[in-house]
Amino acid sequence: MKRLEADQVDAVLRRGATARRSDGQPPRFARGDRVRVLNLHPYGHTRMPRYVRGRCGVVDRDHGLFVLPDSNAHGLGECPQHVYSVRFTGVELWGPEAPDADRVHVDLWDCYLTAEPDGTEE
């Protein structure tokens, strides 16, 4: 635990601290897969917003492996998993009055999702 010294500031900011990792769980989903967000309400930290819980979307892209906030926030390890950009229609999230051409992309970790086998892409 070292103090940040003035002469280190520039290098520390420039380096940043990526949450991307090279090793972790293999991906369960791929681009184009239809998925449903689990209906989970953990008392601890999560980056799964309430408005997507239980909703169906399509995997738009796989961003790669990232530290899992749900464990890392509690000192329970980084547990790297794939993060996907999941695309939801406005109608799926907000009901039939949402405009047809609205899409919301949410970055979600692998363990937030389950396969939605019967779905077809939008």
Binding site: T18, A19, R20, R47, M48, P49, H63, F66, V67, V83, S85, P99, A101, D102, R103, V104, H105, V106, D107, L108, W109
Partner: peptide, 27 residues
């Protein structure tokens, strides 16, 4: 999002897809 964009002075023509990106992860 369309109402928000209109408040910002961005009036989209019909049929334009609005893609909202919620930065929930480290991207």
């Amino acid at each position: 999002p369309r109402k928000v964009l209109a408040e910002f002075g961005v009036d989209l023509v019909d049929g334009v897809e609005v893609r909202v990106w919620d930065s929930t992860a480290e991207l």
